[in-house]
Every structure is written in structure tokens, then in C-alpha cells.
Nucleic acid binder design. Sequence first.
DNA 1: CATCCGTGGAG
DNA 2: TCTCCAAGGAT
Length: 354
Amino acid sequence: MCEDAVSQRLLAWYDINARKLAWRVGPDAWRAGQRADPYAVWMSEIMLQQTTVAAVDKYFRRFTTLWPDVHALASAKDADVMGEWAGLGYYARARNLLKCARVVSGEWGGVFPGTRAGLQALPGIGPYTAAAISAIAYDRPETVVDGNVERVMARHFAVQTPLPKAKKDLTDLAGAETPEHRPGCYAQAVMDLGATICTPRNPACGICPLSKTCLGRARGIAAELPRKTPKKPKPTRRGIAYLARRDDGAWLLEDRPARGLLGGMLGWPTEGWDGTDDGAPMPANWQDVGVEVTHTFTHFHLRLQVLATQVPQGANPARGNFRALRPADLPTLMRKAFDASQRYFDQSEPDTLG
DNA sequence: CATCCGTGGAG
DNA sequence: TCTCCAAGGAT
């Protein structure tokens, strides 16, 4: 391995510029012999799938405080885990997180596999996450290929083929750079570079440790790479949410189906936007709260009308059931509907609870 | 290989 | 206001 290899420059840069992250063993601590906890690495990698570091930090701290090890998590109630995941998005991750914890706790004695194949056989762990855990937690020379790595490789080698077609070529190029020594630090180094220097827009090529060998920069096209096939426009869907509060303060809620949109999460009875069209959950004096909720999902925009009502005890809904609500357990869309309804409930409250 | 699956910040 | 996109995986 020549002194000037990409990996050596990246590691030298990382030793100085590594970001301090709650789940990370930094280069100094690593040199002192400290190693990452596979449970923490796994937890962070699941949370970081398509999610920013800034958003993950709070959730990671909360989860590892509530459930310090995989056995504790495996013993948690589904509703508690889903409630704590609320707001982070991609809720299949939370469902698979629990499934995976229970497999590792019950069948592997609480020890995560160290090999890519063993890891990738677990729920919620795909090619990227398996490589990341193997490299970062077990220091094996596996190659991680995420959006950062794709961008760094596409630019450094001036790959013009658009994603996702270029995926295999970029993976091969990344694999050729992966060092035998400190592969875990290297994996984090490439991703840190992509997150802080080789950014999607306005890359800081002037301070990049790879600039002198970067073909994209040499050709003046670095910022245009990687090329991507154009995306389809998002359609707009419309729907109605029904928020009913009982006189004793209980709310009419339903557990959403285990699969699909907001699967496994708590929600208000709704209509007309997610494939269901059941109408109001019960006959009542439904009032429009006057504020339309707007929300954007991965593949569509939503405009949600919010109807609210106050009902006496003894009311018998056709679907959902009345129960206590912790607003933080709601996914963001449902939380928006709750917030929008407060105007209505604030003015109807004095008569009922005063 | 295409589609589905959240959310919030940046520009 | 609106598009992009962030440490992807499952089907």
C-alpha cells in the first residue's frame, strides 16, 4: 500500500477531523484500545438509515438509556418501542429493530454476528448496515457503500453513469480502496468526508484530502456528480382525520396495521388517503377545526382535513377505542393533526372539565 | 429492477 | 415555495 493511497490520506484526515458522535469511539480512544459496543453500533446504524446525524442523536441517547443492552430491548413492549421511535420516520425500522433484538437475544445469546452474511440475515440489516457493523464494531475489512461513499467515489473517479445504475461500479471502486488496517476507522472516515467536505452541494474541494487525485475536480464536474436518474413528481392526496375526545379526557385512537404507511404506529381514525375509506369512526357532531394539515411523505403530498368532536362517556365507536394519550407517541402527521385540533378543544374544554 | 416507506433541514 | 436528500431495507 503506497503512502499516498486514498485510504491513508483519509485516515490521516479522520484522525484530526473525526466528528464526535454519541455512538462513536473516536480515533484517540480507538488507539488507546477502546472498541465500539456492537449493540450501540447496530442501534446507531439502523437509526441512521436515510436519516441525519442531527435527528438521530436524541433518539439514540433515549433508546440506549431506556434499553442499555440487547436483552433489555428484546424484553421491551412493542408499543413502548414504537412510541419512542415516533417522529423519526420509516417505522419499519422500529419493527425490525425489535425483531432483530429478540433474535440476537434469544438465539445468539445477546452477541451480534461479526460476519457480513451473519449480520445481513437479521431483520432490518441489509448490505450497507451489515458491512458497517462488521467494519466498525468488529474491525473487519468490509466495504461500506452508502450515499456518502457513492458520492465520494463518483467524484474521485469521475463516474458519469447515473445512479442507481452506477451502484455496482461505485461499490467495486470503493472496495479497491478499503484498507486491511483500521477498516472500521476508514469506513467512518469516508462517510465523514462525504458529510462534511464532499457534500452534495458546494463541496469544499479546497480543503479536501483527496483533491489532488480527484478526477471530478480535475475535470471541473465534481459538484455535478453523482448523476442521478430524474425522480417522479409527487402527487397530492387528500384525506380526513377524526379526533374525538371523551369527557373524561380519553382520546379515540387506533393502532395502525403492522405493515404499510405508518405501520404499527398509533394514529387517529382517518379516511381517504392511505387506501382505506371507512368514513367517520362514529356518529357525532364533527366540527372542522379550521386548519388544514399538510404533510409530505416519501412519495406523495397530503392535505388533511381535521374534524373534531367532544363526546360523553359511554360513546361506542365503530373502530378504534378511547384511551389515554401521550402526544409524543404519535408519528408526526398524527401529531400535526393533534396540534391543529387544540384550537377546537381549548374552547370546548372549560365547559366540560372546568 | 421498481416501488414503497418519514421527516426535517438546507438552499 | 419547493426540491433535494440523509450512515437503506423489504418486497
